[in-house]
């Protein structure tokens, strides 16, 4: 790691240099990128399934609700875009932790001299970047299918949506920790994804306290950014502070649950016993 003295190896005269956080970030992001481009079926499958459900929602809703649906179509597209982001980030991080336990690689990440927290954070960032790519494709198709126009201020969307799904990453860490402890409950935890629909819809209920739930504040601000064209610096500071606070709070809380769950798993001797 940074700051450690390099040492001569007994053989070959090679001098191993300590890895820095840059090397760690590169390794984690490159691995994610390689898996993304080398095994595109998973990503494509996710895109197809998401669009299939959106198609059902859109065409089914239009048959039933007619003009009423068309009037709120922009909000539905933005909400669905955020939902695909949230589901992608949540399931990838919680499933990833479960897989790492099964493969025996979680232990190696826990033992890393960097500490597990930076590795987990970088993995989370990698998952978010990957999810943004697939959700961008979904958004583009939704706009084409519905013939809808939205504002797309890239920086504002990236920051607001990124902070919104950071809170979901926290839930993903917590779910991953619970899966480490109780094993094969991934399918049950995946049901939580449908709860995200309520969280994304929360601003519509106009209840003040819902701002402090995951996704809710981000959903409200993202609607304003993509429908009304509000830029990041045009939001009230309090709204942005709540968005950041909720993101940081749930990441910290989720990671704390993950830590507590893995500690309990170590106490029970079930870490890695899949």
């Amino acid at each position: 790691m940074t700051g450690q003295p390099a040492s001569e190896t007994p053989s070959g005269g090679e001098t191993p240099r300590p890895a820095s956080y840059y090397h760690l970030a590169r390794a984690v992001l490159v691995r994610e990128f390689l898996l993304f481009v080398r095994y595109p079926a998973n990503a494509l499958g996710g895109i197809v399934v998401s669009l299939f459900f959106f198609g059902l929602l859109f065409y089914g809703g239009r048959m039933i609700a007619g003009q009423a649906l068309t009037d709120s179509l922009e909000g539905i597209v933005v909400g669905y875009f955020l939902w695909t982001l949230a589901v992608g980030a949540y399931s990838s991080i919680s499933n990833d932790i479960g897989s790492e336990v099964q493969w025996g690689t979680l232990e190696r990440h826990i033992m890393t001299p960097f500490g597990f927290a930076p590795v987990a954070l970088l993995k989370g960032v990698a998952k978010v970047v990957r999810t943004f790519l697939t959700s961008a494709v979904i958004l583009a198709v939704m706009l084409l299918v519905t013939d809808t126009t939205l504002q797309l201020p890239a920086v504002t969307i990236a920051v607001v949506a990124g902070l919104a799904i950071a809170s979901v990453l926290g839930l993903g860490f917590a779910a991953g920790g619970v899966a480490v402890l109780y094993k094969r409950i991934g399918n049950w935890l995946n049901l939580l994804q449908f709860g995200f629909i309520l969280l994304i819809s929360a601003p519509a209920f106009d209840l003040g306290w819902t701002k402090f739930l995951p996704l809710a504040q981000g959903s409200a601000l993202l609607q304003r950014a993509m429908i009304d064209g509000t830029r990041l610096w045009e939001f009230p500071a309090v709204d942005l502070l709540i968005l950041v606070g909720v993101a940081v709070g749930y990441v910290v809380l989720g990671y704390a649950v993950f830590e507590a769950a893995t500690r309990r798993a170590r106490r029970l001797g079930v870490l890695g016993d899949y």
Binding site: M1, Q4, A6, E14, T15, P16, R17, P18, A19, S20, H23, L24, R26, A27, R108, H109, T112, P113, F114, V119
Partner: peptide, 9 residues
């Protein structure tokens, strides 16, 4: 890298 070594080295 995870083990703390620059892989190029």
């Amino acid at each position: 890298t995870i083990g703390g070594v620059d892989p190029d080295s």
